[in-house]
Write a protein that binds this DNA or RNA. Sequence first.
DNA 1: ACAGAATCGGGAACCGGTTCCATGTCAGTA
DNA 2: TACTGACATGGAACCGGTTCCCGATTCTGT
Lengths: 383, 383
Amino acid sequence: MDEHPDPHADVDYWNRFHKSRSDGYARRQSVPDTDARHNGGVTAMAGLADVAALAGVSKATASRALSGRGYVSPATQAKVKDAAAAIGFVASATAASLVTGQSHNVGVLIPVLSRWYFSEVLEGVESALREAGYDLTLYRLSNDDVERRRVFDYFLMRKGVDAVIAVGIAISQEEIALLRSLRKPLVGIGGDVPGISTVSIDDVAAARRATDHLIGLGHRRILHLGGDLEHQMDFHVHEKRLRGVRESLDGAGLGHPDDFRPVPYSIQGGHAAGLAVLADAVTRPTAIVAGCDEIAIGVLIAARQLGIPVPARLSVVGIDGHPLAEMFQLTTIRQIPSALGTLAVKLVLDRLIDDELDPEAVEWPLEMVVRGSTTAPFIDERG
Amino acid sequence: MDEHPDPHADVDYWNRFHKSRSDGYARRQSVPDTDARHNGGVTAMAGLADVAALAGVSKATASRALSGRGYVSPATQAKVKDAAAAIGFVASATAASLVTGQSHNVGVLIPVLSRWYFSEVLEGVESALREAGYDLTLYRLSNDDVERRRVFDYFLMRKGVDAVIAVGIAISQEEIALLRSLRKPLVGIGGDVPGISTVSIDDVAAARRATDHLIGLGHRRILHLGGDLEHQMDFHVHEKRLRGVRESLDGAGLGHPDDFRPVPYSIQGGHAAGLAVLADAVTRPTAIVAGCDEIAIGVLIAARQLGIPVPARLSVVGIDGHPLAEMFQLTTIRQIPSALGTLAVKLVLDRLIDDELDPEAVEWPLEMVVRGSTTAPFIDERG
DNA sequence: ACAGAATCGGGAACCGGTTCCATGTCAGTA
DNA sequence: TACTGACATGGAACCGGTTCCCGATTCTGT
């Protein structure tokens, strides 16, 4: 019906349908000053003008009385507040944003929702924003450049978000410059990007620590089941964790060419890889560093299925602190994603108050949780 | 710092800080008509007036040309579009909403994000809204009434959302009336509420079907590990699934007083319950109907740990179609939460176009997926 | 050729709060 | 007592698009 001749036009931000409200204008003009206006049986939303009229003051005073800004006598303020309460006045945020330029709305860019890490971060962000009185507009951003561009140009510019929090998505320098020129704070979660504020953990250190733990226990044949280097999120988490493992391995002189296998970042991925890697009792490693707890758990399940006792014959360490880790007695390097989210919001709010603040790259501390999935390697007495 | 004397005041929608933009007003007035305006070295956002001026037409024509509404000659339209593109014009959605009354923004109420079902629904909703050009404002809603009230009054009324999608949260009749009086469509996901549009599955039927399956295989001692009736979401999913199980059981004359045990809706919950319930080989059931796949998976893990072969000595059936179900060979009743989300968006959009549409309660079909976790019960030859 | 309809374009009102500025009070002070 | 300054309040401009209304052109049909 509504075919546009050129759907790719640069300025095509407009194809929205409008309910042709043939009332509205007409009403206002034909019914000049009835205090109880109706449209179709429904009481129209009361406006600031109504409050002011009822309280017997001007719109300006009413605004000041309700917002608390500027000088208003206590008596007048009470009068206005009563009037507002009486007619159930709710200010229009839209009108306010138009003049103040602030929408009290933060855009959150996130690539997935169904993975634990991301949903946890999002919960943290949501709570903190809510508490601060901000709305959260959610954009699930794929790595598709076109789609991404659209979100940036269209949603973030046209729609007024006061700031942006990017979770697991590295922002390009171009995008950073755009946001900066609009004076919109930008905080990244999950990795560091030069020039912007970020909240993350030290992924390299996390992986190194996990590996060190195994080496410290005496393991020599250590395999890393980590994320696919091609399909990782923008912050190169997979790569960093791999690097951490290698640094640790190399440091102990235990590096070997077959030290890494790319695996989908999920329990299923870990399970499948585990079945494949652990099948041969002779060649299999004595310990596995998983790229994340999901993979580790998949490996544990595979080991159980294959009848390989953990930790007696196989040690497994994960990274992340997934809630299931405890149940599986998984040794892991714990981080708290929701805390990252909360902290990111704090950084954003700080910059909303003072937009001259320098970028701040915060690294959340890690905590090693040793459980039953790791122990010293089994030494074959006969060897 | 910012202590408010009366944080509980009815009309307290205002405590927001404002960066005192001492530019803005002043600028506009002191620099009457420079075409390239700057503020602090940053080019100010171009407005429709700038576009109109550059194209040599009025604001009215510029607006029509860009939106495609009303009569504009192709030549003029091209001129305006070029001008807009030239100065990188992006219309302010705020200004547009103020006059049109539409924000192209849908509020989504959801109680949790970290559970599979909810994140999956949310992904479906997000995709569909994005595709339709709508923003999604996320509100995580606890069952706390005060908080809930706040969200309704404050966020949903003050902030302009065009419609509301409630996931797993039953809306009160009062809230429904409020939304209806504001002519904002409301669609629920996860259960049915009289008077509003909903998208859900038939939870009773799902549970019945799962139970029927076990009964059909010959099981007699069937236990239901379902959700806690007190801490369930508003749509009474736990209760409905329990009812479904009991209907099936009673229908076969297999009902017994100890047919149900409340369990946290998680793998850990199922695991703990599994360990407790399966410990005694004599009294343990031959089959378990789990309230959801997470519980079922927990039970499977517990069974494996206890050395109980599945399905030889224990059949387990879940409900939901969790992605891990396949890995665990879990028989389940599958639903597709993201599809529910997509459908809910469709219902919302339909009602945004025609607000006279009647409420529609859609029930998504279920699909039974039989895998290796269920089989006929073991008959003790000696008995 | 001409009435009437369809097109085209501009001026101005408008959405609903916010804030600047001018005006006016009243208490404190020189 | 005249003067300064903090306090109160109202009028009006303003944010930035959208749309109403009306005058002006340019097709139609007869």
